[in-house]
Simulated assay, not measured.
Amino acid sequence: MTELVETQNLAMPGLIAGFRNSVERFPARPALFVDGDYLTYDSLGKLVHKLAATILELDHNQNPLVAVLAHRSLTAYASVLAIQSTGKGYVPLNPKMPVERLVKMLRQSECEVLTAGREALQTLEGLLPRVERRLTILLPDLADEATLSCAFPHHRFITSDRMSHGSRDLAIPCVSPDAVAYLLFTSGSTGEPKGVPVSQSNVKSYVQYVCDKYQVNEHDRFSQMFDMTFDLSVHDMFVCWERGGCLYSVPEKSVMAPAKFIKDHQLTMWFSVPSVVGFMSKMGMLTAGALSSLRFSLFCGDPLPAPYAGLWRPQSRSPASDGTPATHLRCA
């Protein structure tokens, strides 16, 4: 009981506060570009609040975690924001992962509510027969759950037409600094995958530091290439939305050769693995001024060879970063 009181006294606005402030300050500005379409902060905010209100209405056991089975789609991004809006943490599940691994992640996280994108339906159908716990599954991309309900009567399905029409004035949640912002799983190469919780205070401190260091503002346009099962996606999303920037989900066809996408959308903030530089160089894409819109470029996941930095640097207006681990980004 003593620990509970201390936690309550330390309550702070959750990570979602940055996005919510941007909705209020920049309602007409673009917040997200995904699958060829733009969503303004106002439009994305409405979808997020609808999802958040639905989660709160359905989660009677007040589980602190909600799973997201989606991959760089509107549902994926909106779900992450919605879960943060409820004061809960999200558990990203990549639909491209083996089903058995997803089952283990769900079991360990003890999630009872899951959101799923249209792109993950085939994976979902393979996953549900292996899940003993009754799940409540939100399907914002579907209007009819009849087929799934008949096939999997043990689970509950909530489609778009049955989602909440709750107020957009949902309060910004106050959370403990130690509350879980998201739960990632290790690769499991030496055994069972192990969940690694990341706290609200850690993420908020990182986001504020990066925003100040790189003077992020509402005119910035961020790349988004990393799957949500990697820490680096947190940088993309929350640094961008903290200050009213626009997040650009790079299409799969452009992930390894993004020069045209960067130029067409005039991206200002880039973040990827270093191998992208090598591939673009071999394809002759690093021509003079090709990346001139970029203010800052970050590379992570592998070491960044000096020759790669030399190839990238003349094409953009700022130096690239080195290849330090995902939790320690440094800009040279």
Rank of each mutant, 00 (worst) to 15 (best):
G191Q: 07
F230Q: 05
T229P: 04
D236P: 02
V277W: 01
M256Q: 05
E218G: 05
F222T: 08
K194C: 09
K282H: 06
S297M: 14
P307Y: 14
M256W: 09
M269N: 11
D212F: 03
M256K: 09
Q224W: 12
V273T: 05
S199C: 15
D227S: 03
L304G: 07
S254R: 09
L247E: 12
G284E: 05
F238D: 02
G289K: 09
L294S: 12
D220E: 08
T190Y: 03
G301W: 04
L311Q: 03
Q266N: 09
L311E: 03
M237C: 10
S223R: 00
F261N: 01
G188S: 02
N217C: 15
D264L: 04
T268L: 13
V203E: 00
L304K: 06
V216C: 10
L183N: 08
P305G: 15
P314A: 04
T186E: 09
V250P: 10
H265R: 06
S292I: 08
K204L: 15
M280Y: 03
Y248L: 02
P177A: 15
S272T: 07
G284T: 10
D231A: 13
V180P: 08
L184P: 09
A309M: 11
Q315V: 15
R295I: 04
S293V: 11
M256G: 06
H219Q: 10
S199I: 13
D264A: 05
G278R: 01
L247W: 04
S233Q: 03
L184H: 10
L304S: 13
M269K: 14
E252G: 05
T190F: 09
P177R: 15
D231G: 13
M228N: 04
L247S: 08
V198T: 14
C300N: 09
P251F: 15
L298A: 14
C211P: 02
V203Y: 00
F296M: 14
Y209V: 08
S223E: 04
P307I: 09
P303Q: 07
L304F: 12
D220C: 03
P303C: 15
A309L: 06
V203H: 00
S201A: 12
S272I: 03
F222I: 14
P274L: 08
L298P: 04
E242D: 07
A259I: 13
M269T: 15
I262P: 01
S233A: 06
T190K: 10
W312I: 00
R313Y: 11
M280V: 02
D302W: 15
N217M: 06
S189I: 00
